[in-house]
C-alpha cells in the first residue's frame, strides 16, 4: 500500500469543495453507498444488541459480559475484521456489513445494559408494587429513565460505524472509501472531499439522534 503525496496548498480545501461541486453525482452515489452499508450494519447491530442489553440490564445479570464486550469491541481492529471477513465470506457487501455489525454492537449493548441496570431502584420497586408486569416495568419505567444513556450508546456506535465504513473500500465495499483510499485517481482534493462527506454524514447522524432523543424524552415526560 502506498500513498501519493500531492502538494498541499491553501487552495486544496477550496479545491475539495469544488471537487464536490464538479462531481456532485459521483459524491452523491458514493455517499449513498456508504450510508447504505453503515446504516444496514447499524440497524442489524441495533436489532441484536439493544434487546440483549435491555434484558440483561433488567435482570441485573451479565455485568462481566457487558464490560467484556465493550473492551473487546474497542480492541478489535476494523482491518482485522475485514481481512478475516474476506477469508470467510469473500469480497462483497456481507463481509463488510458483518465487520461493521461486530464493531457497532459493543457501545449499544454496554450502554443499554448500564442504562437499565442503573435505573432508579425505588421507581422500579414502586412500579412492581403497582402491579406492572416485568415487561411493563422494563418498557415504561426503566427504558424511559435510561434513554439518555441508550441514545448516547447508539450515537457513539453510529459515528464509529460510519467512519469505519470507509475502510471497507479496501475489501471492495465501495462508498466514499473508494475515493479516500484512491488518491492516485482523485487527488488530495478528492480525498479531502470524501472525508468531508463522511464527517458530514457522521455529524448529521449524531445530530439527528440528539433530536430523536429530545423528541422521545419530551413525549415520555408528557405522558407521565
Amino acid at each position: 500500500m502506498s500513498v501519493l503525496a500531492d502538494q498541499f496548498t491553501a487552495h486544496t480545501f477550496v479545491d475539495a469543495f469544488r471537487f464536490i461541486g464538479d462531481n456532485a453525482s459521483l459524491m452523491l452515489s458514493k455517499t449513498g453507498q456508504t450510508c447504505e452499508l453503515a446504516f444496514a450494519a447499524l440497524g442489524i447491530a441495533l436489532a441484536l444488541a439493544l434487546p440483549l442489553g435491555l434484558w440483561l440490564g433488567h435482570r441485573h445479570r451479565g455485568l462481566f459480559l457487558a464490560l467484556g464486550v465493550s473492551t473487546l469491541g474497542r480492541a478489535l481492529p476494523i482491518i482485522v475484521l475485514i481481512a478475516f471477513g474476506l477469508t470467510v465470506l469473500g469480497v462483497g457487501f456481507w463481509n463488510n456489513t458483518a465487520a461493521l455489525v461486530v464493531l457497532g454492537i459493543p457501545p449499544i449493548l454496554t450502554n443499554a445494559y448500564f442504562a437499565v441496570d442503573g435505573a432508579d431502584r425505588d421507581a422500579v420497586e414502586a412500579a412492581r408494587g403497582m402491579g406492572l408486569t416485568e415487561r411493563q416495568v422494563l418498557l415504561r419505567i426503566e427504558l424511559p429513565l435510561g434513554l439518555p444513556l441508550i441514545v448516547a450508546g447508539v450515537r457513539i456506535s453510529a459515528v464509529f460505524v460510519i467512519a469505519s465504513a470507509t475502510i471497507a473500500a479496501i475489501a471492495g465495499g465501495g462508498g466514499l472509501g473508494d475515493i479516500i483510499v484512491n488518491q492516485a485517481s482523485y487527488g488530495l482534493a478528492g480525498v479531502i472531499a470524501g472525508s468531508l462527506c463522511v464527517s458530514a454524514v457522521a455529524l448529521l447522524t449524531a445530530l439527528a439522534l440528539g433530536l430523536v432523543h429530545r423528541a422521545v424524552s419530551r413525549s415520555t415526560t408528557a405522558r407521565a
Binding site: 503525496a5 498541499f8 459515528v159 467512519a163 475502510i167 479516500i180 488530495l188 470524501g194 472525508s195 457522521a202
Partner: peptide, 21 residues
Amino acid sequence: DFLYTIPSIALFQLLVPFTGL
C-alpha cells in the same frame, strides 16, 4: 468530537502533504 468523526484512513492521508510518509 469532530476529529473523531474523520475516518482514520483519511486523516493519515490528509497529513501526508505536511509531514510526509
